[in-house]
């Protein structure tokens, strides 16, 4: 138990510290790297909670794919941070308000769950799915809940993502006229009969184009 407590405090401290560093780092690339560290230690916290499936998904999706693209974009852009910080004092009250609101929400939710939620929590579909068999791995428990209780929401979320993806492609896809593109099919279908022409030019005449 002591080992778990040490691990928890270590990872929680790393999460908070790197979260703070994300906003305070001078170099935007360092910010993204700290964000990755925060994701990673949050995944560690999930593992401590016994939610190893969620932890792995967090690492695969956010750290392995989303943050790579973040880093990709931030490295390419030459972000001038001094310019970005100009409005800092002006937006500070609004940002502080939002952050404070979120913090209060989190405290209220967690204390509610801690004081009277333990009994009520068992009634949620998630807990019922997991409670059905303790031997069930949490990937299976999530799958059961997702594909039975919430299957329509799950499908709808998938549709939303699909529409977003198609929308992004439609918005950015441009066919510039006059650009020669490689057509693999044409290249594969090319043979001596279509690709070659036999001529016998007379002296001084050359080959017509």
């Amino acid at each position: 138990m002591a080992l778990q407590a040490i691990a928890f405090y270590l990872m929680a401290a790393v999460t908070l510290g790197s979260g703070l560093a994300v906003v305070s780092a001078r170099n935007p690339v360092h910010s993204v790297l700290f964000l990755i560290a925060a994701f990673f230690s949050a995944a560690g916290l999930f593992v401590l909670l016994g939610a190893e499936f969620l932890a792995m998904l967090l690492v695969v999706v956010y750290v392995g794919a989303v943050a790579v693209l973040f880093l990709f974009v931030v490295m390419m852009l030459d972000v001038d941070f001094a310019q970005l910080r100009q409005g800092f004092a002006r937006y500070m009250p609004l940002g502080g308000l939002i952050a404070g609101g979120l913090a209060i929400e989190m405290v209220v939710v967690s204390t509610t769950v801690a004081t009277r939620g333990a009994a009520r929590l068992n009634e949620t579909p998630m807990a019922r799915g997991a409670g059905a068999a303790d031997a069930m791995s949490n990937a299976e428990a999530i799958g059961r809940v997702l594909y039975t209780n919430y299957v329509y929401f799950f499908q709808a979320a998938g549709m939303v993502l699909l529409v977003a993806m198609i929308g992004a492609i439609v918005l950015t896809l441009r066919h510039k006229p006059g650009v020669k593109r490689q057509v693999i099919m044409d290249q594969v279908l090319r043979n001596p009969a279509t690709g070659m022409r036999m001529v016998s030019p007379k002296p001084g005449e050359g080959v017509e184009p």
């Binding site: 190893e52 792995m56 690492v59 750290v63 392995g64 794919a65 790579v68 880093l71 990937a139």
Partner: peptide, 25 residues
């Protein structure tokens, strides 16, 4: 012997890109 071993390997191998991308930058 973790229950999500495949995912773990997949996750860790997908992190391998960071070494390269950080080194290059």
């Amino acid at each position: 012997n973790i229950s999500v071993g495949v995912l773990y390997l997949f996750a860790v191998s997908s992190l391998g890109v960071y070494g390269i991308i950080m080194g290059g930058w």
